[in-house]
Amino acid sequence: MIEINEVHKRFGHVEVLKGVSFNVSKGEVVCLIGPSGSGKSTILRCINGLETYEGGEIRVLDKKVNNRDKSINDLRRQIGMVFQRFNLFPHRSVLENVMEGPIHVNGESRAVAEKRGKDLLALVGLADKINAWPAQLSGGQQQRVAIARTLALQPQAILFDEPTSALDPELVGEVLQVMRTLAKEGMTMVVVTHEMQFAREVADRVCFLHSGTIVEQGPAESVLGNPQELRTQDFLRRVLGGPAPTHCENCQCLV
């Protein structure tokens, strides 16, 4: 469904993606992990054309992603995106946020959009908040509305860009729960995350990025449970709070 082949991307003189390749098939959940600045979010933004890329090719649903072409709007409709900072429209109520896409992008009737909007808000556990304004909601609630807003377009896949990074720790669980439900229902998802437990539990595959390349990828259990690469081991140790890495006496490599 999503094919990424040798993608290169630079911001000025800095090359942030140095030939990234991976595929996502239908119904698969892929988690991208890695340290800050490794290019995780950039690759996600390239997939739906929010960023351009200089080399390689990204194909989504068998169409090349080119954000200078008009077809990008059709493609974006089918690939939803959930942002770290929610980006709800503050001048519209919760229900209007969810109905915005179906009515003004898909051209559906108000009645149909409203019914689906209410159903989706019930799905994310916010049936009682349909008339609230985004500013009146907690971070976790806002992110759940953002997920409902994305689902309202009935996308074939959803990209999550660190959906829980801007949340207070006690609000992370409610968002992850909604994402678990989606994964269970067979939604294709690409998730940039620092939630290792979530990745281990939900991801079919985990890709570890470092300095613009995929260092290691494979089933969640093996990448997170038994990483082969030193950089992956080091990263996981730091994230999971294990003992500080030590250096081998002979060759100075990380042990």
Binding site: L50, R76, R77, L88
Partner: peptide, 17 residues
């Protein structure tokens, strides 16, 4: 916030819309 524009574009809205 630029995120507003990006959220709208990521839903498939044209620049004008």
């Amino acid at each position: 916030d630029r995120g507003q524009f990006e959220a709208a574009r990521s839903m498939g809205m044209s620049f004008g819309k």
